[in-house]
Simulated scan of single mutants.
Amino acid sequence: MKLVFKFFCLFFIAVCVQNCSSNTSNNNEDGLDPSLYYEALNVSYGNEDRQKFDLYLPANRSLNTKTVILVHGGGWISGDKSDMNAIKDLIRIDFPNHAIVNVNYRYANEKNKPYPMQTDDITSVINHLKSNSSNYTISDNFGFIGASAGAHLSLLWSYALDTDKNIDMVCSIVGPTNLTDPEYLNNSNEDLQELLDMFGEFPETSYLEEASPLHQVTTDAPPSILFYGGKDPLIPTSQGIDLKNKLADLNVVHEFTLYENEAHGWEGLALIDTWLKLKAFMQTHLN
């Protein structure tokens, strides 16, 4: 479930990114100066090669500075944090006072299921950020933006594992929400089934429910914004619509957009619409 973002490349974006990158930086992680911009790539949060993230800390930050965590897609078996760089650049332009963490996580395979291995990785990232919040000079409040499989992991962690209520908002861009959906259990798409088999060829229903955001969401879930394509070959519209309806039933703050003529990712006016809606949502819930 790899989602490739082709963000609109306007001249002013290139200029703004250049300006962001020109900030004075402090690359000495011992005793970081919060008045200076700080960037660290491939920060380790575990012992394995995939357990790394990129960190971007704004200048003039404080212990009230919130962090946006980006989680890439790739069907739980591929993808890379670099796939989220376009979103990272937009956040640096429109939210210059936010910290950003762009995460890699371990790939699933026949011996290692996506859940709980990959949500364990997110837990490790959150724990690292919280234990280093004084050095980084950031708050313990975070928001998620996930794409495809990364959206599934972002939703699941926010709904089922955020025991300290550190997540202020979560965004799902074409993320799977319900592994027990009949559209999945009875599908005839070989490529899709190969990905779903990462959760086991004959997984128990209880396990699939435990790994499904739809079955884990409660009344105290964080504000959620959802984007889906009506012609997505990998994510049936029921995945987004059913979660939207569940959030409404639970009175959880949410927004939902279905682009009827889009598939697993989009560009042009639909993509501009996505960013404008997400930007407004973040301004309300992650400021």
Rank of each mutant, 00 (worst) to 15 (best):
A99Q: 09
I272L: 15
D164G: 12
N287C: 11
L226I: 09
L63M: 11
F8T: 15
L63C: 04
A221G: 03
S188R: 10
D80W: 05
E201M: 04
E255V: 03
R61Y: 06
D80I: 06
P222S: 10
K231C: 06
E110K: 11
P58G: 13
N23M: 09
H254Y: 13
V68M: 15
F53I: 08
S206A: 12
R61H: 09
N251S: 14
M198G: 06
S212R: 01
W275Q: 02
H215V: 05
D89G: 09
V125E: 09
L234R: 01
W76Q: 07
Y259Q: 03
D54C: 12
I138H: 06
Y37E: 02
I69T: 01
V17L: 11
N97H: 13
M282E: 04
D242Y: 10
L185I: 14
V170Y: 04
V125H: 00
P233L: 05
P182H: 06
D94Y: 13
L70D: 04
N102I: 00
I235P: 01
E183G: 07
E190P: 09
T119N: 07
I241R: 05
I93M: 03
V103L: 12
N287W: 10
S62F: 02
F256Q: 09
Q118I: 05
S62M: 08
E260L: 03
A211D: 11
F199N: 02
T205E: 15
L3K: 00
D162V: 14
S35M: 10
F5V: 15
F11H: 11
P236T: 07
D168N: 15
D121W: 01
N178G: 09
V4T: 14
F7P: 01
L36F: 02
W266S: 07
D220W: 08
N47W: 02
R106I: 13
I225Y: 13
Y259R: 02
L276K: 03
G46A: 12
T119E: 13
A86V: 13
A160E: 01
L90M: 12
L269H: 10
I138K: 08
V252C: 04
T65R: 07
S35L: 12
N261G: 04
K113D: 08
Y38Q: 14
K244D: 13
G150H: 00
N27S: 14
T123A: 14
Y45Q: 03
S35E: 12
